[in-house]
Design a protein around this nucleic acid. Structure first.
Lengths: 350, 350
DNA sequence: TCCTTAATAGACACCGGTGTCAAAAACAAG
DNA sequence: CTTGTTTTTGACACCGGTGTCTATTAAGGA
């Protein structure tokens, strides 16, 4: 029996080769490929055999051209956390695995002046069906407007814009942060520091709101001196650590708006002989690899980024995707984050 | 003056629209797009004006079809270090930024039985010009054979196969590891532990050879009890830490074959009250984000991953890329790693 | 058996570009 | 003003698929 290995490797067989060998028209082969019902079982089998024999794979470029649509989705990101990006990407790939879709990944330079122009050129060239926007650029309205004007649909991650149903996926960050901080309070912490994320980021605001909820719930007031401004990078974490840990009445616990800043705070603590968690409890956010690499391992909040990737893909292009039991309603736009307890939290001393 | 904003957004203009508006044939427009010299300056200008006016962007799918080649390269990876993958990816994107090429990223599951079959399907479908192979799968010869048999050229990263000139890029890891360990010896360390990378990985072998070079250079012998087997994951680092640090005559320094394992060793040390670097010096490899997130910050080896990405892209598809001053000879396949000194190394006590 | 209707298959144009080769235009020389 | 030569341009087929519409075949009813 002839197999793929036998044919010359110089050229991929085309639909014409299949048609000729099967003794049918190329349109018939096309029908088989696209699982059209307008075809007899006998013919279908015959053609399928030839396809298998030849190892025929339809040329996606030609299909894209003929369908007047190309089976491409893009992932636009400027997230500094590589693991987050890759996990999300894997989630998307999980979802599109058995489809005809392909994923193009595009990092975006948020600070560049011509960011928008670059993205426009990219989108005009690739003409993807849709775009997935990871935070923080998912919060950029210019970008979503651009998508809209180019006829590229989009799904934003982490931006609970209630006025855009079906176009965003978010997690219950506020709630989980509240829970995590409540935990601190239950352990007896009363002076709790907070390292804020960068201004203007919805993610930062959500986390801060969760923190405030917890304080309010316990009848505590938020004091400005226990708050430090950060930018999600480790250096801002060490700065925050210096500020908060040099207070005469220093906090016994600190919530940092992401793991990296939490690591910075921890470095300052350990560098100054403040033991964690005995003298200082620390909680981060993201559950990045860092959280388990530092010592003591960091209690943090994990958002279901891979699942979000799969959901986002379904929300974006459900009609091209095979149905998945777990992901029944693409409308469902909220996934649950979880509080991961590790070794960086304990009851305060004395 | 009419601009792109004026035209209806429903449909991208095609080469026919340009041709009609400019009063020339589509072939002439094609010549302008492809910068053919067989065209008069006057016509070129006229067509270019219309292109700008219409905001015309050639359809890459149609070009791919007509050129019988699609302008795609793929990145195949199964590297556990997300930052590495993303940095490399960015290097590639740097290189192809002003070209017609697009990059498709494909994670590969090394442990899956049908890994090879999955990749074959992927490559047969996408038919990329070439593939970039990141370690560790860059060491998989089945994969490179597959590429070869499909007519997909490839460049392997981190595998200095001297019998494959022009097909791999590597760094001088062995040399730099030797230098890093020599540094330990110069500080006075005599009992130096080694956490080995997983069996069968060239990267692991290179690092071990560098370690051996350093010992040999100082007239020290390698003792089996000071060696622990790891698999590049943090848990194997903690296991190694337990083994090495529970020795009656424990090492005063440990070289771990990657940062993650180094973090594991450090956790065991700190958990057992062994201070770093006073009582134990630690060196890692990769300069991952982890290296600066742990405390004390880790001395490590940085390999120029982003630059390697750019170089690899040039080596793979130089004819499609605009020339870059820094990257003159794609033949040059060795990039320099550097030893990054931070706070995890000091002279041994007493 | 013949006619009607439904199911199946094929012919042909088309998607938006490029290659080939011949036609038209521009220029030089006789 | 012709003619020969070189540029410049265009007509047309083609890349590998799909949409539309018609032709063929099979099945059912009179």
């Amino acid at each position: 029996m002839p197999t793929r290995a036998n044919r010359p490797k110089t050229k991929q067989p085309t639909i014409n080769d299949v048609a000729a060998l099967a003794g049918v028209s190329k349109k018939t082969v096309s029908r088989v490929i696209n699982e059209s019902p307008l075809i007899s079982e006998k013919t279908r089998e015959k053609v399928k055999t030839v396809i298998a024999e030849l190892g025929f794979v339809p040329n996606p470029q030609a299909r894209a051209l003929a369908f007047r649509r190309n089976f491409l989705i893009v992932l636009l990101h400027d997230n500094p956390n590589a693991q987050t990006v890759l996990n999300f990407q894997n989630g998307v790939l999980d979802a599109i695995k058995d489809s005809d879709l392909a994923l193009l990944v595009r990092p975006v330079d948020r600070d560049s002046d011509d960011m928008l122009e670059n993205v426009r050129v990219f989108l005009e060239k690739q003409r993807p069906i849709g775009a997935l926007l990871l935070p923080p650029i998912s919060e950029n309205d210019d970008l979503t407007e651009l998508c809209q004007s180019l006829g590229v649909r989009y799904v934003r991650i982490g931006s609970a814009e209630l006025d855009e149903p079906g176009k965003c996926i978010s997690s219950n960050d506020r709630e989980v942060v509240e829970k995590a901080c409540r935990k601190l309070i239950e352990l007896g912490h009363r002076r709790i520091g907070f390292v804020r994320g960068p201004q203007g980021f919805r993610s930062a605001r959500e986390r801060e709101l969760g923190f405030q909820d917890a304080l309010r719930g316990a009848g505590l007031t938020m004091s400005e001196e226990l708050i430090a401004q950060g930018n999600y990078r480790i250096d801002s974490g060490t700065e925050a650590g210096h500020k908060l840990l040099s207070l005469k009445d220093r906090p016994t616990a600190i919530f940092a708006s992401n793991d990296e800043m939490a690591a910075g705070v921890m470095q300052v603590a350990l560098g100054n002989g403040i033991s964690v968690p005995e003298q200082l409890s620390i909680i981060g956010f993201d559950d990045s690899p860092t959280a388990t690499h530092i010592w003591p391992r960091l209690s943090t909040v994990r958002w279901p980024i891979r699942e979000m990737g799969a959901h986002a893909a379904h929300m974006l292009v459900s009609e091209f995707l095979p149905p998945v039991p777990g992901i029944s309603e693409p409308e469902y736009a909220m996934l649950a984050s979880t509080f991961v307890e590790r070794q960086s939290v304990a009851a305060p001393e004395k």
